[in-house]
Nucleic acid binder design. Structure first.
Length: 427
RNA sequence: GGAGAAAUACCCAAGUCUGGUUGAAGGGACCGGUCUUGAAAACCGGGAGGUCGGCGACGACGCGGGGGUUCGAAUCCCUCUUUCUCCGCCA
């Protein structure tokens, strides 16, 4: 969400930005919003002066009663009643317009960074850099779920019966590998100076609306029946929500947190659930990093954050690349975003394992997250990035470490989390 | 889940019974000064935050959130949220 003052003063910039995102249907909103804003201010001025008269008149009535001049007081009461009936209409009109304004403002996209490549959709995302040699082995690598099933490490059939498509049982060493990766990711980020945090896994609707756009919510969030609660799609939601309405002390900045949580996603929309494997599922677990910082530091943090994910996967010997999100593929709240993709030796291409974003002040404005500075309060910048989401991240490790005989070499960094075990094999 | 108590500005806290002279007493912290080699302490002084409108003068809002009663609400009523105490249940 943009600052209405910014829209008022820079309508052309806002329109330009909408065009860059190929959302031309939203162009009329800019003028509509400016018009609404103007009317609202007129109503406000009118209401303010009526309220002022009411305040002074009421004070006068109080004084008259103390002097026992009840007749004069009764006379003035009539005037206040008149004011009040006028105010009812004015306030209702003002609130209606404010509601409309907010609705429109919520769908006008955040101003994207100048460095974001222009493109219509995800086919126009831009590869930035490769890290590590993408190895193509001299044997055919099976589908990841086949590898896991062959090791008695995955049971999707049972999960289908208990919970339906998009769920899974991880078993034995595969389950252990999954938690090992999350534990390793947690410690990796603690070593980077981030503070470990386990947040609530359910959040209220006001927090949901603060951290994501309506369309994202519709396609992602599971709602708890008869409660104002949603299952989180990522711990970013509860971690940013943590600061709702807060004024942070400047000396506490930057706030660098790494949070663990299960994540629940409906995956309604373009992709849908992957039937065979663990790539796109309704439930997964994630170690996340979240940063709240001064606006001028946001871009530095953005670059540091994605490079941590690259470093993490390289420490597991998984080749990765960074892919920058083009303007049209960028969610409306985001200023800039890139995916970290892992090499799949089976498909011989890269696939998404994480996503790093800076949202500028979009979430901070919606939620009222500010810092107290020398020259008054200002909105903070919020950033988030995946350290690892498993099972998806685990697929990368499995495919890059599977042997021709179907056993899996456990990367050195994970062995301490697997009781010293070096290999996963069929017992 | 049941029964009570509470939520006031950066923090603590008075005011709520008895609605107007409290748009918020008093502390602490903070800023300036005296004293001191410097600091602490003590003493003196200072401003009370935030959001919105207005070029400005100024005005509106604001005592957990929302609604109501009233000429007028921090104060009365309803409702929601959170916290604390007790009981029940439970990993």
């Amino acid at each position: 969400m943009l600052d209405i003052k910014f829209v008022r003063e820079n309508p052309e910039k806002v329109k330009e930005n909408i065009k860059k995102k190929f959302q031309d249907e939203k162009l009329p909103l800019v003028d509509e919003v400016i018009e609404l804003d103007k009317k609202i201010r007129e109503y406000k001025a009118e209401g303010d002066s009526l309220r002022q008269e009411r305040n002074t008149t009421s004070d006068a009535i109080g004084a008259l009663f103390r002097e026992k001049k009840t007749e004069e007081a009764e006379e003035k009461k009539k005037r206040v009643n008149e004011i009040n009936s006028k105010l009812i209409d004015i306030e209702r009109e003002e609130n209606d317009l404010a509601e409309k304004l907010k609705e429109k403002m919520m769908v006008i996209p955040q101003i994207i960074d100048d460095s974001v490549p222009i493109g219509k959709d995800d086919t126009e995302n831009v590869e930035i850099e490769k890290f590590g040699e993408p190895v193509v082995p001299n044997f055919e690598i099976p589908y990841h779920s086949d590898i896991c099933e062959a090791l008695n490490g995955l049971d999707k059939d049972s999960a289908g019966r208990t919970s339906g498509n998009g769920f899974y049982y991880l078993i034995g060493d595969i389950a252990r590998l999954h938690s090992a990766m999350l534990s390793y990711a947690r410690d990796f980020m603690i070593d980077k100076g981030f503070t470990y945090c386990v947040p609530p896994f359910m959040i209220r609707s006001d927090v949901v609306n603060g951290v994501m756009s309506f369309s994202e919510m519709e396609n992602m969030m599971y709602k708890i029946e008869n409660e104002d609660l949603y299952l989180i799609g990522t711990s970013e939601h509860s971690m940013i929500g943590k600061f709702k309405g807060q004024i942070v002390k400047e000396e506490e900045l930057p706030i660098t947190l790494t949070s663990y949580s299960p994540c629940f996603r409906k995956e309604v929309g373009a992709h849908g659930i992957e039937e065979r494997g663990l790539y796109r599922v309704h439930q997964f677990e994630k170690q996340e990093m979240v940063v709240l910082c001064k606006p001028e530091e946001a871009m530095d943090w953005y670059n540091k954050m994605w490079s941590y994910t690259v470093e993490f996967f390289r420490s597991l010997d998984v080749p990765v690349r960074t892919l920058e999100c083009c303007s049209g593929d960028l969610a409306d709240l985001k200023v800039k975003s890139c995916d970290v993709e892992a090499w799949s030796p089976r498909q011989q291409k890269y696939f998404e394992v994480g996503s790093c974003s800076t949202l500028g002040d979009a979430q901070a404005r919606r939620l009222g997250i500010r810092a107290k500075g020398e020259n008054g309060n200002y909105l903070l910048s919020t950033l988030n990035n995946t350290v690892i989401a498993s099972p998806r991240g685990m697929i990368a490790v499995i495919e890059n470490n599977v042997n021709e005989d179907g056993t899996i070499n456990i990367p050195k960094a994970l062995q301490p989390y697997m009781g010293g075990k070096e290999k996963i094999e069929l017992k």
